[in-house]
Simulated scan of single mutants.
Amino acid sequence: MSILILMVVQMAFSPDTALPLPTAALYAKLTATAVFWGGTFVAGRALAGQLDPLASATGRFGIAVLCLLVLTRCVEGGLPRLTLSQLGLTLGLGLTGVVSYNLFFFAALTEMPASRTALFVAFNPISVTVVMAVLGQERMTLRQVAGILVALFGALVVISKGDLLQVSMHFGRGEAYMCGAVLSWVGYTVIGRSAMRQLSALAATTYAALWGFAILAGALLWSMYWSGHGPAPQGLRLDVAAALFYLAIGGTVVPFVWYSEGIRALGAGRAAVFNNLVPCAGVLLGFVILNEPLTAAMLAGGGVVILGVALTNRG
Rank of each mutant, 00 (worst) to 15 (best):
G230E: 10
V65D: 06
T17G: 12
A57E: 03
V128I: 12
A28P: 06
N291F: 06
R193A: 15
T295C: 07
N102Q: 15
A34D: 02
L19N: 12
G228V: 06
P113D: 14
A243M: 05
I126Y: 02
L47Q: 13
V257M: 15
L6K: 01
Q144R: 15
G286V: 00
C74Y: 03
A34T: 00
A24D: 14
D163T: 03
R237T: 00
T33I: 09
G269M: 06
Q10K: 08
T206D: 02
A34G: 04
V253W: 10
A55M: 08
Y207P: 05
L142Y: 10
E111N: 13
L238V: 03
A32Q: 06
L4E: 12
I249G: 11
L4Y: 07
L93D: 06
V75E: 08
P80V: 07
V240C: 12
L30F: 04
C67L: 13
A146H: 07
G77P: 04
H229Q: 14
G172W: 09
M140R: 10
Q86V: 00
A195T: 01
T312L: 05
Q234P: 09
F36W: 09
V158D: 09
M112N: 07
E138C: 07
R139T: 05
P125T: 01
F36N: 00
L221Q: 14
A12E: 15
S85I: 04
V128P: 08
R264S: 12
A219W: 14
V157K: 11
C67K: 00
Q198C: 11
M224Y: 12
P233F: 02
L165E: 15
P80A: 10
G44R: 01
L79S: 06
G250H: 06
E111V: 00
L284G: 02
T205L: 08
L69N: 03
Y225A: 15
L165N: 13
A242Y: 05
A24C: 11
T58L: 12
G49L: 12
D16R: 14
